[in-house]
Every structure is written in structure tokens, then in C-alpha cells.
Design a protein around this nucleic acid. Sequence first.
DNA 1: GCAAAAGTGTTACTAGTACACCCATGG
DNA 2: CCATGGGTGTACTAGTAACACTTTTGC
Lengths: 230, 230
Amino acid sequence: MINQNIKIAVDAIVFGYEKNVLYVLAVQQKYGVFKDRWVLPGGFIKDDESLIDAVKRELQEEAGVGVNYLEQLSTFGDDVNRDSRGRIISVAYFALVNPQNFILKADTDAKDARWFPVNQLPVLGYDHNEMVKLAHARLKAKLTYQPIGFDLLDDEFLFSDLENLYCSILERDIDRRNFRKKILSFHILKETDKLVKTSSSGRPGKLFKFDKAKYDQLLEEDFQFEIKFA
Amino acid sequence: MINQNIKIAVDAIVFGYEKNVLYVLAVQQKYGVFKDRWVLPGGFIKDDESLIDAVKRELQEEAGVGVNYLEQLSTFGDDVNRDSRGRIISVAYFALVNPQNFILKADTDAKDARWFPVNQLPVLGYDHNEMVKLAHARLKAKLTYQPIGFDLLDDEFLFSDLENLYCSILERDIDRRNFRKKILSFHILKETDKLVKTSSSGRPGKLFKFDKAKYDQLLEEDFQFEIKFA
DNA sequence: GCAAAAGTGTTACTAGTACACCCATGG
DNA sequence: CCATGGGTGTACTAGTAACACTTTTGC
């Protein structure tokens, strides 16, 4: 069989959201040319490991993170010199997590792991800023045609949390009444009877849950989640 | 650096369209375990070659095809045994061509090259049927939100050609009047003053051209190509 | 009683849908 | 004059957009 001197790696763009800010996970390299440089979590694939398992393993090893949503984004291999160590092709994955579900801890290869606000990201190693840019665009687009915002929130959330998430990620104002009407019209939320208040003043709000089972069922009947904005 | 025993390849799902039928390009293998088996055109990447160049080279070598539209589809590497020769990860590309622009000719590695109607595809080698399925879904989806139908047609075409293309690929009826109104409202077509008739009877129709420059310009002004159907 | 956040309904407008007849050509 | 395919307009419907006041709570 052909002889090839190319290595293959995976990298993950992991988004987290908290209090109106969208974060990206980065790790600080322990070794190599980019020692101390911030990069996306990732690494080489093992010979007998699926791509997706490789991503999950790296996230676990480098930052102690388990994801809510994970999908393949794109494969970076057009720039032959994207990695100075040699020809390396990387399959980038797009992930969503709730940062409150775990505590970041740098582990195997990483010296440190941190959340950076997506708008204040340092210069990362390799072509990782480009990957983040692409993933960010994907997130914005997907938010409007797939119910993935819930993967960034707690299991139970206030309507205003969801609304603020859309506002801050899409960077635009949204009419609260129209937004609520639209989302409720899908019937993919379960209303709990719990009332909570976040800040010290103001009327408490009802908690909602995303009804995944209902959503999956609706998908069978060509239901299309879609939100447009004024 | 890590030792890895994984090879990387590219494969292409090339769609062509002619007279209400959507075709996929396949080549017949000359050598190997799958000798004589139909598979998608593709092959190993060279060490100093970008992914996209590898695809273009393989298409040229195996079938003599130059594409109108080419984009990365997905990378297949979750099934560790997808290729019996060893661990091979494949980056699949999605391509559109106008079959009239060239003559198929099997060349380097391929014994033969042929168009198969997408609905009468034989069992292909590897996981290639799965790739076609994914690409087909992508084509259907993209047709409604990107002006890629033109890449399957001649440079100049009748409105009815475009309409039939949408009908046959999306497998549904379309109201001619509404379709024409919608497409024309985008102002991305140039009307030529040529009149032609395809069949021997009936009124001749006007030829149109896709105005790519105009479309690119509109994109700058957040124009969104989008067609919905009744 | 005031500040803060939650909850709610109506009207105007725009875009989508449904639908049928006339026109130009060749035979 | 008939068969075939090209070209066109209007009325109805549904979904989106714009918009402001009332309720509950803590202080």
C-alpha cells in the first residue's frame, strides 16, 4: 500500500455560556514548539480509535470536560504547513457544554485549561483562531434552525435565560413577546411549577425544561425548528 | 512525535443532472480487493498536497472530470474497519458538474467511469453508499438556501430547465408561477435575448444566465437566497 | 411605593399560497 | 386548428413585526 507521511489529529471548539457571555475552552501547552501557548484541546488519534472517541478522550484528558452536544465541523488540511511539526491534518469538532457541570482541570498534556470569552480570545497556536471563527459562525447559524441553545443552559431554566442567550450570541435585540410566542408555539418546552428569582428584586419566573422526547417525535413528522428575528 | 498507522484519503460524490435525472459518478476499480467493484472516485493524498487538490487530481485522473462546485462534506473515520486494507480515514467532498462539459474517461486507477442515476445506484465498495446518501441530503437541503442548481445546468438555460431541476431533485411539484416570481425577485438572473425551443413543438423560451457577480454583491448586503415550497 | 424582572394581546404588514387563461410555435 | 410548452396576475391566507401595560416580588 501507498506510503504516506501524514498524521491525523482532532481538535475541539468547545463553547460554554454563562451570564450573557459566550466562552471558548482553550488549554495551555505543556511541551513542544508552542509550549505555554494557548490552543484548542485536541491531539492525535490512536490507531484503533474512532474520530469521535478521540475527541471525547482528549477533552476528558486535557480539561476534564464532558459535552452536551458534539458534531463534526470541518477537516483542516489544505494548508500543508498548518503545523510546524510536519504534515498534520486535523478534524475539528464543534461542542457545546454547560460550564457549571464540571470543574476545569488540566490533566495529561495540558498545563492549564481556561474559558476565554469568544470576543477576547488570545492568538492561539496553529490555525486554531480560524477554527474558532468557523465554529462561531456555525453556532450562530444553528441557533436559528436547531434547538441547540438548551445544551448551553442548565437543565431547568428561565425563559429570560433562553432569551438572553439568543440575544448575546446573535448580538441583537429580540422582542420578548414574539420570541416567547414563537418558542412556545413549538411545544418543545415542559413547564415546571417551580418559581425562582435570580436577582434580589423582581418577580420570580417559572422554570422550563427542554422536552427532547417531544422534539424527537416532532422531527418524525417533518417539524422544522426555525426562528427568525426582526 | 507520535507513531500512527493511519492513512488518509479523499473521496468525491459528484452529481450531474440531465433531462430530469440526477446522476452520481462512480468508477470501477482496476486493482485490489474490490477489483471490478464500483466505488466513488477518490484515493490517497500525497504528502505535500492539499485536500482539495487531491480531490481535483483524483477526479481528473480517474474520470477526466472538472467540477463547477466543490465543498467538503464530511470526514469518515468513526468505523475503524471501514476499509479492509487497514485504518483509513476519508475526507468526502461534494461536487456538482455539468455532464455535458466533458467526456468521461477512465484513466489511471480506474477501469471504467460511469454515471448512475442516484436512485438506481449499485452497491458500492467501502461505506460509499452512506457517503452518497449524506451528499444527496446535503444537495436537497442546499438547493433551497444556496443558488447551486446553476452549477448543474448549462451556462444558459430555460426557466423550465431550472424548474424541472428543482422538481426532480426535490421530488415534488412546484407551482411554476410562484417559482418564477420568487427566483426573479432575487435579481440574480440575466435575461438574454435568445429564444430557443427544446422539443419540436411549443413556444420557444428565453434563455437565462446566472449572474454570479450580482449574487456575490448581494451577499455583501446580507441578502439571503431562500426558496420555500407549498 | 418604588425598582426590577416576569408575563401577556392586538393590529398592521409582508410573504406565501392557490389558482387558470392566453401566447407562440410546428405539424 | 390542434398539441405542446412558455409566459403571466390576482385574491386569499398565514406568519412576522411592531408595540405597552400589568403583575409579582424585595427593599
